[in-house]
């Protein structure tokens, strides 16, 4: 699975820590998701999509 988290975060000038605080997770979690080392659970993926006001496919894709 790939994601656009780094791009979406950069568009808003948020640091990983900023995004982590908005999501209520650790900075390590954000880093692991951005680098593709960890695929989030469905509830966390929905929280991320909602934060960026996008559908879940707007953040994550299956390829």
């Amino acid at each position: 699975m790939t994601n656009r988290l780094r791009v979406l975060r950069a568009e808003r000038n948020w640091s990983q820590q900023d995004l982590a605080e908005r999501l209520g997770v650790s900075r390590q979690s954000v880093n692991a998701i951005e680098t593709g080392k960890y695929d989030p659970s469905l509830p966390l993926a929905f929280r991320i999509a909602r934060l960026f006001d996008l559908p879940i496919e707007g953040v994550f894709s299956a390829d």
Partner: peptide, 8 residues
């Protein structure tokens, strides 16, 4: 631990 990645 309520952070799923840290729990993993």
């Amino acid at each position: 631990l309520d952070d799923e990645f840290l729990r993993l």
